[in-house]
């Protein structure tokens, strides 16, 4: 059997809200090591990868590897029935065609149980090689979200240039052009307010703001976002999930014609 208990249903809610506009259906791959999920949007232009380590759960048991095919819109409907502080348990028997989702309020006075139908998905799984990226930035996720949202009003694409002093987001549109530069700041009192650049060489790539906006929906997952870039390969936009794992998004840079 498979059973995974999370102290806060809100974490699962945030994960599903972060990806459900991008991904319709996905397999949750469960093993002794934890839960992973890899899925592409319908046009296969972006990819998201979730990793939740088993030791990040309150309780975790997975007797044999399982792939649970889920419709994310339907999972979202069920998660809306959970209080943010509810304890959430996912459970399925071997060969079951449903996933049992349980919410327990902190004082145990309210217990909800749902059976979500599983779907058979013939999902393509891509091997993502370990890559030594030329430029990496860690910055506050709320700042990233705001920059992407603001630039989306001006244009369709955004250049991201990482240099030794920081990162510059540039945009061009019918009304003109603009840029927002965020300076490296490793001295900020709180770790989550720091902007840190690690680079071997400056990298500048251009991306579709439509997809970066989808990725920014993961902002509630944590205070930090990490961008990893190398020339001519997909950017990795990673939202670390404290003590549990991460949610990563991949998007290819725009190619100049």
């Amino acid at each position: 059997m498979f059973e995974a208990k999370l102290n806060e249903a809100s974490l699962l809610k945030k994960i599903v809200e972060a990806i459900r506009e991008l991904v319709t259906d996905a397999n949750l791959d469960c093993s002794e090591a934890g839960i992973t999920m890899q899925a592409m949007d319908s046009s296969h232009v972006s990819l998201c990868a979730l990793n939740l380590r088993s030791d990040g759960f309150d309780h975790y048991r997975c007797d044999r590897n399982l792939s649970l095919g889920l419709n994310l819109a339907n999972l979202s409907k069920i998660l809306k029935c959970a209080g943010n502080n509810d304890v959430c348990t996912l459970r399925t028997e071997d060969d079951a065609d449903t996933l049992t989702v349980t919410f327990e309020s902190p004082k145990q006075e309210r217990i909800s149980e749902f059976e979500l139908k599983l779907i058979a998905l013939d999902a393509e799984h891509l091997g993502i090689p370990d890559t030594n990226y030329k430029a990496q930035v860690r910055m506050p996720s709320a700042e990233f979200q705001r920059i992407i949202r603001d630039l989306s009003v001006i244009g369709d694409t955004c250049s991201i240039a990482v240099g030794k002093d920081g990162v510059r987001f540039g945009v061009e549109g019918d009304l003109g052009s603009g840029s927002i530069s965020v300076k490296q700041n490793t001295a900020a009192e709180k770790e989550e307010e720091r902007v840190e650049v690690h680079m071997e060489e400056p990298v500048e790539l251009t991306f579709a703001l439509r997809y970066l906006n989808f990725f920014a929906k993961a902002t509630p997952l944590g205070p930090i976002v990490a961008l990893s870039m190398s020339p001519d390969v997909p950017v990795v936009v990673e939202f670390p999930i404290e003590t549990v794992g991460y949610l990563r998004f991949y998007l290819a840079p725009k190619i100049d014609e």
Binding site: M40, S43, H44, V45, S46, L47, E124, H125, L126, G127, I128, P129, D156, T157, T206, A208, V233, P234, Y250, A252, K254, I255, D256, E257
Partner: peptide, 14 residues
């Protein structure tokens, strides 16, 4: 503006 490359161009199916 350029085109958008699919992910399976970069990462191979396993």
């Amino acid at each position: 503006k350029g085109g958008q490359t699919r992910m399976d161009t970069f990462f191979k199916s396993t």
